[in-house]
Computed example of a mutant assay.
Amino acid sequence: MARENSTWGHRRIQGELARLGYPIAPSTVWQILHSARIDPAPQRSGPTWRHFLNAQAHGILAADFLHLDTIALKRLYALVFIEHDTRRLHLAGVTAHPAAQWTVQRARNLAMALGCRMDSLRFLFRDRDTKYTRSFDAVFHADDVEILLSPPQAR
């Protein structure tokens, strides 16, 4: 039944068997499907998780600050961008005192460096740091890149 009806899960198959007069527990149907190496219903009929992620990764850019502790016990901050499809890391700049204006200028520099490749980007993932202002977002909105924020207090 599972091979003939790729959208049916173990509960649907159990229900159909019960309707035909074969009382069987859903967990037993699941065990039978699992031992026959038949994946759960949604995974049988669509793309794999790997294909899904690869399809979405092409248009994703992420931004974040990294902190670097020097041998002189000073802390420096590096603004980095990563393209998810190529895993290419762009070091936008390093400073001891990052400010909103500095961050906006680094975003402009990245947009100019990427040039026509900015057209292929659809999403920018970033956290809710106060250094990412509306001006920072506007740099990416100008190239039709949607800003996606990480959940509050995500670690």
Rank of each mutant, 00 (worst) to 15 (best):
I147L: 11
S120P: 05
G115Y: 03
V80W: 05
H51W: 15
Q101K: 00
H10C: 11
R37C: 11
E146C: 14
H84L: 11
A63E: 00
R117S: 03
F65I: 02
L89D: 06
Q31L: 13
H97Y: 04
A96H: 12
I82M: 09
D144K: 07
D119W: 02
T95N: 07
L61R: 01
Q153H: 12
A55E: 15
Q31I: 03
A138I: 12
A100C: 06
E146S: 02
L73Q: 10
T103L: 03
A18E: 13
W8F: 15
H51I: 14
A25I: 07
Q56C: 14
L121H: 00
A96Y: 09
H141W: 10
I13S: 03
T130R: 08
A18I: 14
T70R: 07
R19H: 13
A113V: 03
L114N: 05
I24D: 07
F125W: 11
D144I: 03
D137I: 03
L79N: 04
A63R: 00
H58I: 15
K74Y: 13
T28H: 04
Q56E: 15
D119V: 02
T28S: 13
D137S: 06
C116W: 04
Q31F: 09
P152F: 03
A99P: 00
A36R: 14
A63C: 01
S35G: 13
R122G: 08
V104Q: 07
A78G: 12
R75T: 14
F81D: 02
V80F: 00
F52S: 15
R134A: 12
D129G: 05
R88Y: 12
A57Q: 09
T95F: 10
F136V: 09
I32G: 09
F81W: 04
T103G: 05
P98M: 11
A62N: 00
H10F: 14
W49E: 15
H67E: 05
R3V: 11
L76P: 10
L89M: 10
I38D: 11
M112K: 10
L73N: 13
F65D: 06
P26S: 00
H141C: 05
Q153A: 04
I147W: 04
G15F: 08
I38L: 15
T130M: 02
R134D: 04
R44K: 11
R117T: 01
R106S: 02
K131Y: 00
M1H: 05
R155W: 01
D127N: 06
A18S: 10
A154F: 03
G59W: 08
M1I: 11
R155G: 04
S45P: 02
H10E: 00
L89S: 12
A96P: 05
W49T: 09
A96G: 07
A25H: 15
A154V: 00
Y77A: 06
I60D: 04
R37Q: 10
S6Y: 10
A111N: 02
K131T: 08
L66D: 07
H97K: 15
S120F: 06
H51S: 15
A57M: 08
H141N: 09
R88Q: 12
F140P: 08
R117M: 01
D119C: 06
P23M: 14
T48H: 14
T103H: 12
A107Q: 01
D64Q: 02
A154Q: 06
R87P: 12
L73A: 15
L114Y: 03
P42K: 08
S27T: 09
F140V: 05
D137C: 07
F125E: 00
M118N: 01
D69K: 15
A2R: 04
R122N: 12
